[in-house]
Amino acid sequence: MVDFYFGAGALVMILTGLALARLLWGPGPADRMMAAQLLGTGGGAIALLIGTGSGVTAMVDVALLLALLAAFAAVALCAGEPGSKGIHRERIK
């Protein structure tokens, strides 16, 4: 059963590694942010799987952290847009 966790974790790791290719090719910053987002979520999934397989319950916190940071990265992308005043932009255009 433990081998199943490590096998699934290895598979998710390979998939997330492949998804990083989008980081290189991605024409726009949005594509690169998507690869970073998948890295965060995939990393969280790997942390969960390896944590359950090895019995280290602290890995659940690692997964929580990775999932949160990936979300903040997407917010940072949009807040840092050149034409924006951060989050508080007026919607009427």
């Binding site: 910053p29 987002q37 979300a71 997407a74 917010v75 992308l77 949009c78």
Partner: peptide
């Protein structure tokens, strides 16, 4: 984040 990236 999906909505934000799409808006961006």
């Amino acid at each position: 984040s999906g909505q934000l990236i799409a808006q961006f």
